[in-house]
């Protein structure tokens, strides 16, 4: 046995056998404390820890199941809401189209009416203007005759002739007509 030599080398630490595991004198101590440790762990686990963790896990899985169901429900609701929204959008679009068409027609009618009225007014204005132009022209012709008569009279007088009013008028009229 080299145990003695080893013991000498290890000094104060001391050894009773080469392999501490095979030192039977410590077994009772180890087994005693092992059994106590196991019993303590067993009771702590089976009375407190495991039921609690099991409950938490069951709780969580039921929560998850419920949440999934709720999510499914919410999804259905969302789909329904989307459908309603799309329908509303469709309807609004149709309404908008109708309103636009109506407005267009109305505006067209107004425009047509206004155009017709404007045409009438323009025609009236044109007729009036024409009348006035004709009047002015007539007035102007009269004035020309008058001026021509007077001028002719004056010219005749200046030339030293004796102006015969009737003769001049006739002459001027004849000239103008010419």
């Amino acid at each position: 046995m080299a145990t003695e030599a080893h013991e000498a080398a290890a000094g104060a630490a001391g050894h009773s056998a080469g392999m501490p595991q095979l030192d039977i004198s410590t077994w009772a101590n180890q087994i005693f404390w092992l059994v106590i440790a196991l019993v303590v762990i067993y009771f702590v686990l089976s009375r407190v820890a495991l039921p609690r963790i099991g409950a938490v896990l069951a709780d969580r899985s039921s929560t998850i199941t419920n949440d999934l169901a709720a999510a499914e429900e919410l999804k259905q609701k969302a789909v329904a809401a989307e459908k309603a929204y799309n329908a509303a959008l469709e309807k609004a679009r149709a309404d908008a189209g109708r309103i636009v068409a109506e407005a267009k027609a109305e505006i067209q009618a107004d425009l047509d009416k206004a155009t017709a009225q404007a045409d009438v007014e323009i025609a009236a204005k044109g007729a009036e203007s024409e009348a006035r132009i004709a009047e002015i022209r007539a007035g102007a012709l009269e004035s020309v005759t008058e001026v021509a008569k007077d001028t002719a009279k004056e010219i005749v007088a200046a030339l030293g002739g004796k102006a015969d009013a009737r003769g001049i008028t006739a002459a001027v009229t004849a000239k103008l007509k010419g």
Partner: peptide, 22 residues
């Protein structure tokens, strides 16, 4: 002498480390 004649009830390093594990 810390190693010889260890009685079954004595507190050893086994006890301590088992307690730590527990």
């Amino acid at each position: 002498d810390c190693t010889s004649n260890i009685k079954w009830y004595e507190i050893t390093n086994v006890t301590v480390w088992m307690a730590v594990a527990v």
